[in-house]
Design a binder for these strands. Sequence first.
DNA 1: TAGGAGACTACTCGCATGTATAGCCATGGG
DNA 2: CCCATGGCTATACATGCGAGTAGTCTCCTA
Lengths: 224, 224
Amino acid sequence: MRTAQDDLTGRARLRDAAIECFAAQGFDESLRAIAARAGVSAGLVRHHFGSKEMLRAECDATVLQRYRTLKTESINADPASLFAQLPASREAGILLVYILRSVRDGGAAGREFLEHMVAEALEFSMDAVARGLVVPSRDEEARVRHLVRQSVGGLIVQLAMHPDTQLDDFQGVIEQFYADSMLPTLELYSEGLFTDRTYLDEYLAYVAGTNNPPAGLAGEQLPR
Amino acid sequence: MRTAQDDLTGRARLRDAAIECFAAQGFDESLRAIAARAGVSAGLVRHHFGSKEMLRAECDATVLQRYRTLKTESINADPASLFAQLPASREAGILLVYILRSVRDGGAAGREFLEHMVAEALEFSMDAVARGLVVPSRDEEARVRHLVRQSVGGLIVQLAMHPDTQLDDFQGVIEQFYADSMLPTLELYSEGLFTDRTYLDEYLAYVAGTNNPPAGLAGEQLPR
DNA sequence: TAGGAGACTACTCGCATGTATAGCCATGGG
DNA sequence: CCCATGGCTATACATGCGAGTAGTCTCCTA
């Protein structure tokens, strides 16, 4: 019925236009604007997808799939950036902005994206620890969750501070973000922030005094 | 004309209700919902504020002022958290969520909040460096901007992952966030992440090769 | 060549929103 | 006493939205 062939028809144009509109303007962008970008009428969305919600779901799935493809294609090992210079092309930039907006707005799609990144980063991090590049943590997953949350959040803030960025200029904003963050990140990762271990040791002693071992403290999030 | 006395009338109730609604539901919350929370009619918003935009502006100013008051009241010196356990009360929790939403959605208010936090943190950080508690950075402002952006962003992501959090439960979510982040943060700040300085030194050598000194790299953001 | 399935459009409907208008009514100074 | 000021409400209006309906056009096939 619905094969990969008809991805050349208006259905695919509509889906791709929706992804670009959602990335550029947010998920509240109207169906009429999406249809206009695709060069079709608004009613065609209903004809092909049934509702805006189902169009959104298909966009989510498509973006996640393309993100996975892009990740597996470009295997690089730069521990300085958990995103591994994703926005190398306009297409990748759109994907990244779409994902950032998904996380920003919450919901199932954003949570799925985030969990995907955590799983990726956890695998990467444990490998880096095993190879002696990264110091071990008392709770690897908690550290990875923290780093991913902070990194994604930092990008979201950067995106929010440049709301009028066009999709084509977005690579520039990301590059500026990395340029701004590279030195502080490398300093922090290489030299830390505190001059002594007092705060850490005091916290470890405090935690050891409770019945909560540090390793089991930060596994799952709050159960809604 | 409009003195501090009439803050006991419906005008203040409307403003406070708007702040709570904006924090709980976002800035797209309807005037009718805000008026309902305040126990007045929707038309009163126009009567007192002229438009929704001007109501929003007054909410922004009020939140910023209360945030400043709260900050100057509670002077504490805990370098582990740049937010200094702000949400100690329900009122403070509402302020924090409002600020996070402002930054999240971009715009002038969010940028103002962020710049305010950067200025605070910069002052605090330079003092900590002078007292020998924190290692110096090659670009103090860039480091502070980075840390503030990451911290605020991390909270925004945490907030997005718990979209159905009530305003009263929000302190719990923040406490959970701190509980999850405390160990990774202290580890990172005390022990760093990399086992050696290779990446940092390579970057410093690379930057030294260009005409851009590291200190001047991350001052102002992109000129829109 | 006839016919039918599906891509696509024009138009409409109900709904929610921000804004605008007209008026009620309690209070307080003449 | 009286009436004007201003807080406040009820209602209407214009707009833009997603969703629904009916119909046209274009191939592909029997």
